[in-house]
């Protein structure tokens, strides 16, 4: 094989050709490229060589980085995180607000009633407009979160049809996000998929402090959470096994496999039936 440097196809003052060659080219063994590039007449001086290489490599790195950060996987990860962030903020503010109202009224009430009753029963409360305003913000955060969930529901079937059908759009997106992309998820064994999101528990187990975790984020699916506690381990193994297969089909083929989903629901039914004997 002839060893070709990144500059071989280069024209004068050209950054684009070099950047493509840097991104896509390869070579088995390094050569004294700067000297070769000058001998072949591609550059007059060493400084010219390095200055063109600096600009071309910056362009190549920018393009290659965009290929990764603009991929559908990465967009999904951001959406999942936004949904989580909004949920967390909503919960924090909501509990802060009801704590405050509860302290004032002396009764513990849930949110819409608490805010309605304080105006009725405590007209002397001068903070009322602020409470109302904060409550309105909470409602709009909640609406915002709903919008992003709808966006996931819209986008997920085209990214990972089988995984979405099996796990629902949010859990499917969460698994892809935590795995670092659909490709990485597709390459994980089902035992790893089973404990994605339970890394702390897993490492405690590996250090010998604890029992092995039964499930990670897949717990949020009703196949696990609505299965009797003693059977959740079995349900998690079965579910994660099929999830791993679904991820592989989505990554390598992209077609829907209806039998995969019916098989899973039959298996889960059989596991649950064990508890009812």
């Amino acid at each position: 094989m002839v060893n070709k440097g990144w500059f071989n196809e280069l024209e004068v003052e050209d950054i684009v050709t070099g950047s493509i060659a840097i991104q896509e080219g390869s070579c088995n063994s390094p050569q004294p490229w700067p000297g070769m590039a000058i001998d072949s007449g591609h550059f007059i001086t060493i400084d010219d060589y390095y200055s063109n290489l600096n600009l071309s490599s910056i362009k190549a790195a920018q393009n290659a980085a965009f290929d990764v950060t603009r991929s559908p996987d990465k967009q999904l990860s951001h959406i999942v995180r936004i949904v989580d962030d909004l949920h967390r903020i909503e919960n924090e503010l909501s509990s802060r607000l009801s704590d405050w109202i509860g302290d004032y009224t002396g009764v513990t009430q849930d949110m819409p009633e608490a805010i309605n009753n304080i105006s009725k029963d405590h007209p002397e409360n001068t903070f009322y407009p602020y409470l109302i305003s904060l409550h309105d913000q909470l409602l709009s955060i909640s609406k915002e979160r709903e919008k992003f969930i709808q966006l996931l529901e819209l986008e997920m079937p085209s990214v990972a049809p089988n995984l979405t059908q099996m796990a629902g759009p949010i859990l499917a997106a969460r698994l892809i996000s935590l795995a670092g992309g659909l490709e990485k998820l597709a390459k994980k064994p089902s035992g790893t998929v089973q404990v994605i999101g339970a890394e702390n528990a897993l490492f405690a187990h590996l250090r010998g402090h604890a029992t092995s975790p039964k499930h990670g984020v897949i717990y949020t699916h009703e196949y696990i959470s609505k299965t009797e506690k003693s059977l959740r381990g079995a349900a998690s193994r079965t579910f994660s096994g099929k999830l791993a297969i679904a991820a592989r089909i989505d990554y390598y083929s992209g077609r829907i496999y209806p039998t995969l989903h019916s098989e899973l629901s039959e298996k889960i039914d059989r596991i649950r039936a064990r508890g009812r004997k």
């Binding site: 440097g5 990144w6 088995n28 004294p32």
Partner: peptide
């Protein structure tokens, strides 16, 4: 090999 065509020897 994905960067041997860019990084020089020696």
């Amino acid at each position: 090999k994905t960067y041997s065509h860019v990084v020089e020897s020696n």
